[in-house]
Simulated assay, not measured.
Amino acid sequence: MQELLPKARKEFNKLQKRLRRETGQAIADFNMIQDGDKVMVCLSGGKDSYTLLHILMGLQKSAPVHFDLVAVNLDQKQPGFPEHVLPNYLEQLGVPYYILEKDTYSIVKEKIPEGKTTCGLCSRLRRGTLYGFAEEIGATKIALGHHRDDLLETLFLNLFFGGSLKAMPPKLLSDDLKNILIRPLAYCRERDIAEFATLMEFPIIPCNLCGSQENLQRQVIKEMLQDWEKRFPGRIETMFNALQNVAPSQLADTRIFDFAGLEAQREKALSNRINLLDALVTEA
């Protein structure tokens, strides 16, 4: 990490404390990590996963419960991928780690036509490999580096393009019921993470497979949210609060609210009110 002047050092400490506080709060709010957990931290080489590992290692020392950390990177055999970077970094850090090798790059390039978005297939292949490996090493939790902005971007992606009202949950049980995913950075802002990663001088590895696809729908959503935040400061915070303040009765999904039973609910309430009045009259 670079040497900082006293004022810059003070600001860095504030930033690190904020990230630790928000991460700790998310872990507590969603009961993400319990005593005895073995947490597999998925390390991609990007700013988010580096920050996640760093913050979790700090919290590990002061947490009221004991948990183990293991870092796992999936080498997808992208051309030019600097294979030495992560092992060297993790060796210096002293954290247990695994580097998995699976040529998902060739599969994606074979299946997806040139110019089309590769993220969907790439993420499915990556997810399947990591889920299976978590079982192999006995990991009880899989930690991902998604942050608050990712959650909101996913909400609008699903709203605009998927016709559904859902985001990324901070904690999730996989469809096969075998793995629990956690997103400890769910309360953290991307700009804070980016600043922290720069100051920490993490050895960032760019994604050459999909990172250069500027026409991705997610990038469009990101730019929209950034524009809103510039023009209407505080809007992002308000929208994120909405994810924790859901009113099913004010939406239109019959699977999560019993609209058909409202009449019966009204009759029951009226009956209870009449019974209460009768009881009061009798007592009088």
Rank of each mutant, 00 (worst) to 15 (best):
N158Q: 08
E267Y: 03
G162V: 09
A139R: 00
P206G: 08
P170G: 06
D150Y: 05
P233K: 03
L121V: 01
A284C: 04
Q213Y: 14
R266I: 14
L262P: 01
R231I: 01
E201Y: 10
E83D: 05
E3Q: 12
P6I: 00
Y187K: 12
L181K: 04
R148E: 03
K171T: 04
G211W: 05
A186M: 06
F67G: 05
G120L: 03
R273E: 14
R273P: 00
G24W: 07
Y98I: 12
K166I: 09
L90N: 11
G24L: 06
D48T: 00
V85Y: 08
D253E: 13
R235V: 15
A264D: 14
D37P: 07
Q219P: 00
P169Q: 05
P96Q: 11
E214H: 10
L5E: 12
S62W: 03
E110S: 14
A186Q: 01
L209T: 04
L5R: 08
T154K: 10
Q34T: 12
P82W: 11
A134N: 05
V65G: 02
F202E: 11
C42K: 00
S106E: 12
I221V: 15
A242K: 13
Q226N: 12
R231Q: 11
L185Q: 04
G94V: 08
N88W: 00
N275G: 08
N241P: 00
Q2D: 12
P206S: 10
F240L: 11
V220Q: 10
L15G: 03
V246G: 00
E267K: 14
T129E: 13
Y98P: 04
K38P: 00
S174D: 13
K7E: 15
N88Q: 11
I142F: 04
G45H: 07
A139I: 00
D35P: 01
L130G: 01
Y50F: 15
L151P: 00
I236A: 04
L125F: 03
F133W: 10
L152A: 03
C119W: 09
S106A: 14
A247K: 15
S249N: 13
R255G: 02
A264F: 05
Q34C: 10
Q2F: 15
G94Q: 09
Q226E: 14
Y105V: 09
G163M: 13
L43W: 07
Q219D: 12
C210S: 14
G94D: 08
P169R: 06
R183Q: 12
M1T: 06
N272T: 02
K102I: 01
A28V: 05
L270P: 00
G211P: 05
D48E: 04
L280S: 12
C122I: 07
E110P: 03
E135R: 15
L225K: 09
P169K: 07
I205W: 09
K166W: 06
N215W: 15
G80I: 07
S174K: 07
K166T: 15
L151M: 09
